[in-house]
Design a binder for these strands. Structure first.
Length: 965
RNA sequence: GCAGGGGUACUCAAGUGGACGAAGAGGCAGGCCUCAGGAGCCUGUGGCUUAGUGCCUUCCUGGGUUCGAAUCCCAGCCCCUGCACCA
C-alpha cells in the first residue's frame, strides 16, 4: 500500500478485463425476465467529472442489483454530440484563443502523457468531429475504469448516419401527428456572425447568464413625431412627470408603420432585426428636444423633455419616461436638475422644473406615497453616479410593487387592480390605440453581451422557426396518463413532472447551425440537442446490429424503423427495398419487443423540467402504450467542499482521476453513501479518507477469514442475527432505491457489528473462522457497490464464478432473534454502567457481582408491555384488574404495586421489549469472561433471589443490579 | 412572485408520534493495540448532580393538539433549486 489510499487500481483493472473477456454484461434476449435500465448519454464536449459519475454510479448499482436478482439486464451507453457547444469550442481553437486552448490541453492531459501528443490532439480540435470523437472514446475508458456494467457493443453517437436517419424518422412521425408547428421566435443574435448564438458563444456566458427580455414601448407625441420610450413597467405611465433623453446623443428618426419614431441609433438597428419594416429618414440631436414639451399617451398631459446621464442609448430605445415616485433613478435625476445640473447648459426654465411634482400611483404597505424617495433617503443616495445603489433599490422596489402593489385612484379604469395584473392590461389598452408596442432586449447579469467573435449580441426575431408543440392539450393528457402509470422515485418529484407537463408549450426544436440532424423537411435547420434525444433508448436495440456490420447506415429507410419499432409493414417488402436480410429485420423486431419498454431511467433531478418530460411526451407520441417508460429514478446534484463545481472556481474533479487518485470502489461507495438521493452531495476529502479506511477494514477482514471449526455461542448467534437482520434491511432499502440506507445497513452497520464481535469474543482464534461463515453473503451483498474488491475477495474464497452475476443474498428470518440481540444490548449497557461506577468510586475493583432480576419481574413487565400495547394506556386500576389472576401478583403483591406506580407515573419509562429471564441469565453467564477481561477482576453472576445484599433488589429485567467490591 | 425542497448538537448527516440526549460519520479529549500498521479499536463530548441515578435545558422561532412531539396542526423567520432553448 502506497500513497494516501489503498491502491487497488491493479485489482480493478484485472476484473474489468475479466468481465470484458467473459462478456458478462453483454445482454442478449433469452428466457429470463428482462430489465432495461438507461442513464442519459454524456455530452462529449470535455471530460466527465465526479458529478456526472454520481448518476451513472447509481444507475450501475441498480443494474448490478437487478442482475443479481436474476434479471437479464441491459445497461447500454452512447454519446451525445449534437448542438452548438462543440462547434463553439472548435471555433475558439481555430481562432487561436489561448484560454480555450489551454483548457483543452489540460483536459487532454488527463489522458495523454506526452505534451507533443497533447498539442497535436488539441490542434485537431479545430474540426468539431474530432472533439466529439476524442472525448467519446475517452469517456468510454472512464466508464470502464469505474467498473460500470455496460454493454458496449451498442454504443453510438448522435452524429452517426444511422442515428440521423432515425431522428428524421421520429420527426416525420411528429409532423404527421401535427406536433410540429411553425412560428416566430426571438433569439440572441450576433450582428457580426449574423447568426443566432447560445450561452457558449458569448464571452463569459456562463457567468453573466445572457437572456432575452421584453420592453414595452410607449409613444410620446412631439409634433408629427413619436418619442418612443421603453419601460418594463407600462402601468407607471400614470405617474409620468417628464421624459428623459441622453443629453449627448443624436437620435434617429425612422419611418415605421406609417409613423415617425424617434429612437436611438442602436435601437433603430435592433428594431430592424425584430420583424419591423423601417426606414431611416433623418436624425435629431437630444439638445434640440430638451426643454420642450411632448404629450404622454395615457392622459395626454404635456410633459417636459429633460436630460439624464443614466439614459443609455444602447439599452432599448434610449428614450425613457420619468416616474420619480416609483423609480429611484428618475427621482435622483430630477434632484440633480433641481439642484441646477444641466440648467444653464440647456437653458432650462427654473419655474417649469420646480413645478414638477412626483405623482404617486402605486400603493404598497411597506411605503408611503413616494417609495422611490423614501428608498433614496434611506440609502442616502444623492447622485445619479451612485449607480449600484440605485440599481439595488430599483430591484427591491420593482419586486415589491410588482407582486404586492395596487394601483391608486388616479389610474383611471385600472384603479384598484394589482400591478401584477394591470401591467399587461395597461399595455393592451395603449396598444389598441396604437400608442404602444414591444421590443426585445438582451438581459444579463453584467453587460455588455458580446459574442466570442467580438460582435455585439442583440435580439433578433426569427419568423420561420420550427416548434414542437408541447402545448397541445390532447398530447399533454396522453403524457399525463403515462406519468400516472409510471414509478417516480423518490416520489416527491412527481409533482415537478406534473407541473412541467402543465407549463410546457411550444419548444423551438431546430437551429440554424450546430452539429446534429437536419430537419427532414427543411434542411436549413438542425434539430436541437434536447429534441433529438427523447426516444433514443430504442436505438440501442439496432445500434448493436450496425456495429456488428449486419446493416449499413444507408439501408435505413423509414420503413425499417416502422417495422422494427412499430411492427408495421412486411419483412419481405422491406428486404426487397432496402436489401436488409429479413432474418435480421425479424431479429431486431424481436429484440425490440423483448427489451422495450425502458424499465428504469436514472438521472439527475435537473433533467425533469426538460429532457425527462420530453422523454415521456415523445414516447407517448410515437409508441403504443405498452412501450411507454415504466420508471424514472432521480438523484440530486453534487458539490465539492461546499461549493458548486465550475470551471471558474477551478475545482472540477474529472472522473478520469478517480481510479488513480482514489479508487473506483472508493468513489462508488462514497458517492452513493455520502448523501441520499434527494440531497445535494458534498464531496469532502476528509469524509472520503474515512470511508477509505472503512473499505480497507472491510477488505482486511474478508481477506483474513479462514475455513474452520468454531464453538457455538450466544455471541455468535447475536452476530448471525444482526447480520441477517442487516441483509433484510439492506434488501428492503435497495428494493425501494434507498441506496444510501442500503449501504448504511449492508456495509457500515455490519462493519460495526463485526468490530463489536471481535471485541466481545474472548477466544480471538475463533474470530476469523467464524467470520468465514458470513463472508460469502457479505461479499455478495456489497458487490453492486464495490464490485472490484468483492470480485477479488470472492475469488480469494476459492470461488470460480463472478460475484457480479451471482445470486443476491437473502436473509434467513429464522436466524433473526430479537431476544438474543436484546440480551447483548443488556450486556453492553451493564458494561457501561460498571465503567461509570468504577469511575465514580475511583478504585480498581476486586470483584464485581451482577444480580439478574427475579423471574416475577420479567413476567410482570412482559404482561405490562402487552397490556400497554393493546390498550395504549397505563391506568392503575385498569392494570390491577388485568393482572390479578397472575401468579406474580399473588406472590409479590407489594413489590408489584411499587413498580406499577412508577410506570403509571411515567409511562415513557416502560421499555418496549423485555427478555426472558433464562436468556438474559445465559447471556451473562457466557459474558463472564468478557467482563473479567475488561475489568481485570473476578465477576460473579447471581440470581436476585439468591442474593444476600440489599442492592440486589434493584435488579430489573434488562438492567441487572451491580455491586462492586 | 410561482413551483418544489429544506432548517437536527462544534461540523456533515439520519430520524417524521413512545425504546430519543436523538443513527452514522467528522472534529476534539483521553485510553488501547503494536505490524491485517502512515491504519484499526474503545471511552467521553448540553448543564448540574449521582454507585450505574436524578433533575433541568435542547432538534429555526412562537403558539396549539396529545398521557407523550424533532416528528402532527397553525402562524412567522431564514436558506437552497427550477421557471426553459443551456446540455
Amino acid at each position: 500500500m502506497i500513497g494516501e489510499y489503498m491502491q487497488t487500481i491493479e485489482i480493478e483493472r484485472k476484473w474489468q478485463e475479466e468481465w470484458k473477456k467473459a462478456k458478462i454484461f453483454e445482454a442478449e434476449p433469452d428466457k429470463r425476465k428482462k430489465f432495461f435500465i438507461t442513464v442519459p448519454y454524456p455530452y462529449t464536449s470535455g471530460p466527465l467529472h465526479i458529478g456526472h459519475g454520481r448518476s451513472y454510479t447509481n444507475g450501475d448499482i441498480f443494474a448490478r442489483y437487478m442482475r443479481m436478482l436474476g434479471y437479464n439486464v441491459l445497461f447500454p451507453m452512447a454519446f451525445h454530440i449534437t448542438g452548438t457547444p462543440i462547434l463553439s469550442i472548435s471555433m475558439r481553437i481555430a481562432n487561436n484563443e489561448k484560454e480555450t486552448i489551454n483548457l483543452f490541453k489540460e483536459y487532454v492531459s488527463l489522458y495523454e502523457n506526452d505534451p507533443k501528443k497533447v498539442k497535436k490532439i488539441v490542434e485537431s480540435f479545430k474540426e468539431p468531429w474530432n472533439v466529439a470523437n476524442y472525448f467519446a472514446e475517452k469517456m468510454m475508458d472512464d466508464f470502464k475504469s469505474i467498473g460500470y456494467s455496460i454493454d458496449w457493443r451498442r454504443r453510438f453517437t448522435t452524429g452517426d448516419k444511422a442515428y440521423k436517419a432515425f431522428v428524421q424518422w421520429q420527426f416525420r412521425k411528429l409532423k404527421e401527428s401535427g406536433y410540429l408547428i411553425k412560428g416566430s421566435y426571438p433569439v440572441l443574435f450576433c450582428i457580426n456572425c449574423n447568426n443566432a448564438v447560445g450561452e457558449d458563444d458569448i464571452k463569459g456566458g456562463d457567468v453573466i447568464k445572457p437572456g432575452i427580455c421584453e420592453f414595452y414601448l410607449l409613444k410620446f407625441k412631439f409634433d408629427d413625431l413619436y418619442l418612443v420610450a421603453a419601460t418594463l413597467r407600462p402601468e407607471t405611465i400614470f405617474g409620468v412627470t417628464n421624459l428623459w433623453l441622453n443629453p449627448s446623443a443624436t437620435y434617429k428618426i425612422i419611418q415605421i408603420d406609417g409613423e415617425k419614431w424617434v429612437v436611438s441609433e442602436e435601437a433603430a438597428f435592433k428594431l430592424s432585426k425584430q420583424n419591423k419594416e423601417l426606414k431611416e429618414i433623418g436624425e435629431i440631436k437630444a439638445s434640440e428636444l430638451i426643454g420642450k414639451y411632448c404629450i404622454e399617451p395615457m392622459n395626454k398631459n404635456k410633459i417636459l423633455i429633460l436630460p439624464a446621464e443614466f439614459v443609455d442609448t444602447s439599452q432599448a430605445t434610449g428614450v425613457v419616461y420619468s416616474v420619480p415616485s416609483h423609480a429611484p433613478f428618475d427621482y435622483i435625476g430630477l434632484v440633480e436638475i433641481w439642484n441646477g445640473k444641466f440648467v444653464d447648459e440647456f437653458k432650462l426654465n427654473i419655474n417649469e422644473i420646480k413645478s414638477i411634482k412626483p405623482i404617486s400611483l402605486i400603493k404598497v404597505k411597506e411605503f408611503g406615497d413616494h417609495p422611490a424617495i423614501e428608498l433614496c433617503e434611506r440609502e442616502g443616495i444623492k447622485q445619479v453616479r451612485e449607480k449600484d445603489k440605485l440599481e439595488k433599490v430599483t430591484q427591491e422596489l420593482y419586486k415589491l410593487e410588482f407582486y404586492n402593489g395596487i394601483l391608486k385612484e388616479n389610474c383611471g379604469k385600472f384603479a384598484g387592480k394589482k400591478v401584477f395584473d394591470a401591467k399587461e392590461e395597461v399595455f393592451s389598452y395603449l396598444y389598441s390605440m396604437k400608442l404602444a408596442d414591444k421590443m426585445y432586449e438582451v438581459s444579463a447579469i453584467e453587460k455588455p453581451v458580446v459574442c466570442r467573435c467580438g460582435g455585439n449580441v442583440i435580439v433578433s426575431v426569427i419568423s420561420d422557426q420550427w416548434f414542437i408543440d408541447y402545448g397541445n392539450e390532447e398530447w399533454k393528457n396522453k403524457a399525463r396518463v403515462c406519468l400516472d402509470r409510471m414509478g417516480i422515485v423518490p416520489e416527491i418529484y412527481r409533482k415537478l413532472f406534473e407541473d412541467t407537463i402543465a407549463w410546457l408549450h411550444e419548444r423551438p426544436c431546430a437551429r440554424r447551425r450546430g452539429l446534429g440532424t437536419p430537419l427532414p423537411f427543411d434542411s436549413n435547420w438542425i434539430i436541437e440537442s434536447l429534441s433529438d434525444s427523447t426516444i433514443y433508448m430504442c436505438f440501442y436495440i439496432i445500434s448493436k446490429y450496425i456495429n456488428e456490420g449486419k446493416i449499413r447506415a444507408e439501408q435505413f429507410e423509414d420503413k425499417v424503423f416502422d417495422y422494427v419499432f412499430l411492427g408495421k409493414g412486411e419483412v419481405e417488402d422491406i428486404e426487397e427495398d432496402t436489401g436488409i436480410n429479413r432474418e435480421i429485420l425479424k431479429a431486431m423486431r424481436k429484440e425490440f419487443e423483448y427489451w422495450y419498454p425502458v424499465d428504469q431511467r436514472h438521472t439527475a433531478v435537473g433533467h425533469i423540467s426538460n429532457h425527462l418530460t420530453f422523454y415521456i411526451f415523445n414516447h407517448v407520441a410515437i409508441f403504443p402504450s405498452d412501450k411507454w417508460p415504466k420508471k424514472i429514478t432521480l438523484n440530486e446534484m453534487l458539490i465539492r467542499e461546499g461549493r458548486k463545481m465550475s470551471k471558474s472556481y477551478g475545482n472540477v474533479l474529472p472522473l478520469a482521476e478517480i481510479p488513480k487518485k482514489y479508487s473506483a470502489d472508493l468513489y462508488r461507495l462514497y458517492v452513493s453513501y455520502a448523501a441520499d438521493l434527494t440531497s445535494t452531495l458534498d464531496w469532502r476529502e476528509n469524509d472520503i479518507k474515512n470511508v477509505a479506511g472503512k473499505i480497507e477494514r472491510f477488505y482486511n477482514i474478508l481477506a483474513h477469514v479462514k475455513k474452520g471449526k468454531f464453538r457455538k455461542s450466544m455471541l455468535k448467534r447475536w452476530l448471525i442475527s444482526r447480520f441477517n437482520r442487516k441483509i433484510k434491511m439492506a434488501d428492503e432499502c435497495i428494493k425501494s432505491f434507498k441506496i444510501r440506507d442500503y449501504i448504511q445497513h449492508a456495509f457500515f452497520d455490519v462493519l460495526n457489528d463485526i468490530n463489536h464481535f471481535e471485541r466481545r469474543e474472548t477466544d480471538k482464534k475463533e474470530v476469523n473462522r467464524f467470520l468465514y461463515s458470513i463472508a460469502d453473503e457479505w461479499i455478495r451483498l456489497m458487490s453492486p457497490v464495490i464490485p472490484h474488491l468483492c470480485e477479488e475477495l470472492w475469488h480469494s474464497l476459492g470461488k470460480k464464478s463472478f460475484v457480479s452475476i451471482e445470486k443476491w443474498p437473502s436473509a434467513n428470518d429464522k436466524l433473526i432473534d430479537d431476544k438474543i440481540e436484546l440480551a447483548e444490548e443488556t450486556i453492553m449497557n451493564t458494561h457501561a454502567d460498571i465503567v461509570q461506577i468504577i469511575e465514580l468510586i475511583k478504585k480498581q475493583p476486586k470483584k464485581i457481582n451482577l444480580f439478574i432480576a427475579s423471574e416475577w419481574k420479567f413476567k410482570f413487565l412482559n404482561k405490562l408491555i402487552k397490556i400497554f400495547n393493546e390498550n395504549k394506556k397505563i391506568d392503575f386500576n385498569f392494570i390491577m384488574e388485568k393482572i390479578k389472576e397472575e401468579d406474580f401478583w399473588k406472590e409479590k403483591k407489594e413489590d408489584v404495586i411499587v413498580l406499577l406506580k412508577k410506570f403509571v407515573k411515567e409511562p415513557g419509562k416502560l421499555p418496549s421489549i423485555i427478555n426472558e429471564r433464562n436468556i438474559e441469565l445465559k447471556a451473562f453467564l457466557e459474558a463472564k469472561n468478557f467482563f473479567e477481561n475488561e475489568f481485570k477482576c473476578s465477576v460473579e453472576i447471581i440470581k436476585e433471589e439468591k442474593a444476600t445484599i440489599e442492592k440486589a433488589r434493584q435488579a430489573m429485567p434488562g438492567k441487572p443490579a451491580i455491586y462492586v467490591e
